[in-house]
């Protein structure tokens, strides 16, 4: 079931992701909004690798996001790094913080693990808050440039236009999406699912489960760091809130509402929440309350998240010749 041939990571949900990415700027009111959705979809997808596939509820995601934002912005402002080197710095910053936090937090399991990631998240926030000479503290890091796409100092494409920048982010998103599917269908990915299902058994058949969890953290951190770096480029600014606990919560809520254990669910989750925020915040300042209600509804009634709900609906409507899957998570894991 988790033996997806190489060619098929290019089909199925990947085609749906491509379709979504092409349609979003057409349907949505602005390319900037679409870009924000893709950036948070990257972060949710990375969180999904930990929560949906490995079974680790990490509140560290905001730290990786913030580290990616700050580090890439700082090297662009002070050392005039180009676009790709700056993104690489963001990826490395996310991976490195994830390695440190992951390696320490997985020494405990269950609720203690969650509490450790929570503490790291609080610590990182206060570090960013108090080091205001570097991070700008409460004011945020201002005047972050958006360098053009260039190779060997030769400028190829300016990203100043919102639509062009959207295209750039969309290509990166699709690349990460395909790479994440490759990871999920690798021996490594199948072992992560095994650890989620039963860590004792995974250890008994020969896996050093800590190694696998740390690597899952590093991959998740790298993708989240990339998302953070892109967010800094989008806003031309790094707000302190990027590294707040609320960002971790935001990412987790997107992951859960979209559907854990399905990569497309992460896009769906990020899309719904960013859109909901955009529409509702103009109408009603207390809109995050509705977010709480949505989360409660999904957790209680839609265990597979929005994506799982859509799959159920499709099964019910089409009455396909194959019997409907009793458990959506099962089906999602096979994607």
């Amino acid at each position: 079931m988790s033996t997806t041939p190489t060619s098929s990571i290019w089909r199925g949900t990947t085609l749906l992701a491509v379709a979504a990415v092409v349609l979003m700027p057409v349907i949505l009111p602005s390319p900037t909004l679409a870009t924000e959705i893709l950036i948070f979809a990257l972060a949710a997808l990375a969180s999904n690798l930990l929560l949906g596939y490995t079974g680790l509820l990490s509140f560290g995601q905001g730290v990786f996001f913030g580290a990616g934002s700050y580090c890439s912005a700082l090297v662009m402002i002070h050392w005039h790094f180009g676009l790709f080197p700056a993104l690489l710095v963001g990826i490395l910053a996310g991976a490195l913080t994830a390695f440190v936090i992951g390696a320490l937090a997985i020494r405990r399991t269950g609720i203690y693990f969650v509490m450790l990631t929570l503490s790291f998240s609080q610590m990182a926030y206060f570090v960013a808050y108090t080091m205001s000479s570097v991070t700008g503290g409460d004011n945020g890091l201002l005047n972050v440039p958006r360098p053009p796409v260039s190779v060997l100092g030769f400028e190829l494409l300016s990203l100043a236009s919102p639509l062009v920048f959207y295209g750039f982010v969309a290509l990166l998103f699709l690349a990460v999406f395909v790479a994440a599917r490759r990871v999920i269908h690798s021996p490594f990915g199948s072992t992560l699912v095994a650890i989620r299902e039963n860590e004792n058994r995974a250890s008994a058949v020969g896996y050093d489960t800590r190694q696998f969890k740390v690597l899952a953290f590093v991959l998740s951190g790298a993708i989240t760091g990339l998302a953070g770096a892109l967010y800094a480029l989008l806003l031309n600014f790094v707000p302190l809130s990027n590294i707040e606990l609320a960002t971790s919560e935001h990412i987790l809520i997107m992951t859960i509402i979209g559907g854990t254990g399905s990569l497309l669910g992460s896009l769906l989750g990020a899309g719904s929440i960013v859109l909901l925020g955009d529409v509702l915040s103009a109408l009603w300042p207390r809109w995050p309350m509705l977010l709480g209600l949505a989360l409660i509804a999904v957790v209680m009634f839609l265990r597979g998240g929005l994506w799982g709900g859509l799959l159920d609906l499709k099964n019910r409507l089409i009455r396909s010749p194959e019997p409907p899957q009793p458990d959506t998570r099962q089906k999602d894991a096979a994607q």
Binding site: S2, T3, T4, P5, T6, R182, V183, H185, S186, P187, F188, G189, S190, T191, Y207, D208, Q211, F212, L215, L219
Partner: peptide
């Protein structure tokens, strides 16, 4: 540990 190869298909 050879299962750590995350870039290979299963």
């Amino acid at each position: 540990a050879r299962a750590l190869t995350f870039w290979r298909p299963t």
